[in-house]
Design a protein around this nucleic acid. Structure first.
Lengths: 338, 338
DNA sequence: GTGAAAGCGCTAACAT
DNA sequence: ATGTTAGCGCTTTCAC
């Protein structure tokens, strides 16, 4: 592999001129710059990443801690990852892939100057990794919002607003009994903050409109979704609309509704809270509060870049939810108020 | 951040002794080693990755080119990734995440010594990236088997054997008309080698048993799967069994069978070719020829390690398929031969 | 506008 | 069993 010295020799300039010509950090005459660029191109020169990192104390690498534990929704994880990778590339950064389980890993890549920022996915309300993240020698950005965000940069969908939006949309269409098919009771108890915030928003929306919200936790499986529908319609007041915030259960919910002979939206209105790709893979189209995974991934990188740039202010950014296809699976409530 | 010099001073030894004590590349007396380890621990010393890469000309990073294009099955992609990351960690390697679309990216990380091996996913029969991969200054391992494997290390499920296994299983249960719900016609034409090899194996199996194989390409969607079932039962001879090699269509296939009032396996036998996680997410359990994504990812890393170790022999490893739950959705054929 | 040279923090060959 | 030292290939200050 050619080094910067080879390029310098070929271009007939000094070593530092090559460096400056290529980085643009110093005024270089047009003529020399062209000669240098040409020599570099012809030799197929690529700066040695390690040497550069050593000299500049920057690796130009962003570490990304991705959860691999089973039961997690893979689709949305991939959305985040895709967003992070794309945004990192536009900033000339590479992405180092870490498993999210081990906080030690994040500490290692940060302390060894392997990465100069970290993005951590799947952060829980009371995440065990928080102290470690605060102690990091490099900036970190969390996807997900813990209870205590002091000193931490966080980004996520505004799930509270998403819950409110979903319920409001239905309430404004005249529905007065709405079921929320949410994450499993286990996940809720674990403090999966998106589920908790979503529920809070849905409850707030219900209260604001004076409608009833039935809470139906569901396992993240096809069978779980089907069971949740059974439960929603078996209990007390019969819902005329469903909000489903459980990607993996969505297929089961739709299937169970069909089996019960309930047409969407003629008999039941449905609002899904999910990445648009998942909603698109269902047998029927659904009105969707989008979880914009890619966008959040991008923002995470932007925030990391900003903090690498020396901006110390940790901030929490909540992305406003958007309602997709408001008409397709929401209809005015047919049932008369009792 | 403390450097190796700080550790040396704290332990009262020379700089190189620290290096050797920590790497184990030289005999060091028990006593000194302990002192060094203690000093390193107390200072929180981590070798600077760039400095190490520069001095040793090894980055200890494996680049992984992951396809992000839509329509790809995310589940299986994540399986591969998880396998690669886990295996890399057990070898003390980090994983750099690249998007698979751009061969230039792979060349960049290889030439800049950012990574000292690359694993490339989603390789097609006549992949455009092949020449670039052959020219790489570092070893590469492909997941997927192109037509011309000269000089390349490849690993994948033995899809030919998988196709044969699926068909044989059904033929041996007495089925004489079997439909293969495969990848879309487009994918097949593009040379998605797994689909092509799977079909060849299925055809071979059918020929060997003297049974008929109906080919039904399907779009990778719920609707596509449902449509494929319609088509399979509309055309000429009625199949009594289905082989489904199309993860995303699987849900639609199962749903359509149910809608037609066909019980599995009483009325139709079904064998899925899919990652076990996907099969597990379906409303009913299915006999499955497993696509062992994690395992293949692991093997890819092992092969890369071997070639980094100086072993020049490019080899192609085809993982033998395994049949999961042979009973659950395969029954003896009820239909009498005409 | 360009060059010379001093590191960056390690590894490994060459000492003893 | 340990120490000394010459790089590895860059970036960046200092000098002109």
């Amino acid at each position: 592999m050619p080094t910067i010295e080879d390029v310098a020799r070929a271009a007939g300039v000094s070593l530092s001129t090559v460096s400056y010509a290529l980085s643009g950090k110093r005024r270089i005459s047009e003529a020399t710059r062209l000669r240098v660029e040409r020599a570099a191109r012809e030799l197929g020169y690529r700066p040695h990443a390690g040497a550069r990192a050593l000299a500049s104390s920057r690796s130009d690498v962003i570490a990304l801690a991705v959860p691999f534990r089973p039961g997690l929704d893979v689709q949305i994880v991939m959305q985040f990852v895709a967003g992070v990778v794309a945004a990192a590339r536009t900033h000339g950064r590479d992405v180092l892939l870490l498993t999210a389980d081990d906080p030690e890993e994040v500490a290692r890549v940060a302390a060894s100057s392997t990465a100069d920022a970290v993005v951590v996915m799947d952060v829980a309300s009371d995440d065990a990794r928080l102290p470690a993240l605060r102690a990091l020698p490099v900036p970190s950005v969390l996807i997900g919002v813990p209870d205590d965000t002091r000193g931490l940069s966080c980004v996520d969908l505004d799930f509270t607003a998403a819950g409110r939006l979903a319920v409001s949309t239905l309430a404004e269409a005249g529905h007065t009994t709405i079921a929320l098919v949410s994450a499993s009771a286990t996940r809720l108890a674990e403090g999966a903050n998106y589920a908790v915030r979503m529920r809070a928003g849905a409850l707030a929306g219900a209260a604001a409109h004076g409608v009833e919200l039935l809470q139906v936790p569901s396992e993240p499986t096809f069978a779980g979704g089907a069971a949740a529908v059974q439960e929603a319609f078996a209990r007390g007041p019969r819902p005329t609309a469903l909000v489903v915030h459980n990607e993996a259960a969505l297929g089961g919910v739709v299937s169970a509704l069909e089996r019960l002979g309930l047409r969407v939206p003629a008999d039941v209105s449905v609002v899904a809270v999910a990445p648009s790709e998942i909603a698109a893979a269902l047998p029927i189209r659904l009105t969707t509060v989008e979880v914009p995974g890619q966008r959040i991934g991008r923002i995470a990188v932007e925030m990391a870049m900003q903090r690498m740039g020396g901006d110390d202010t940790a901030e929490t950014r909540l992305v406003a939810p958007a309602l997709l296809d408001p008409e397709v699976s929401v209809a005015r409530c047919a049932a008369q108020p009792a």
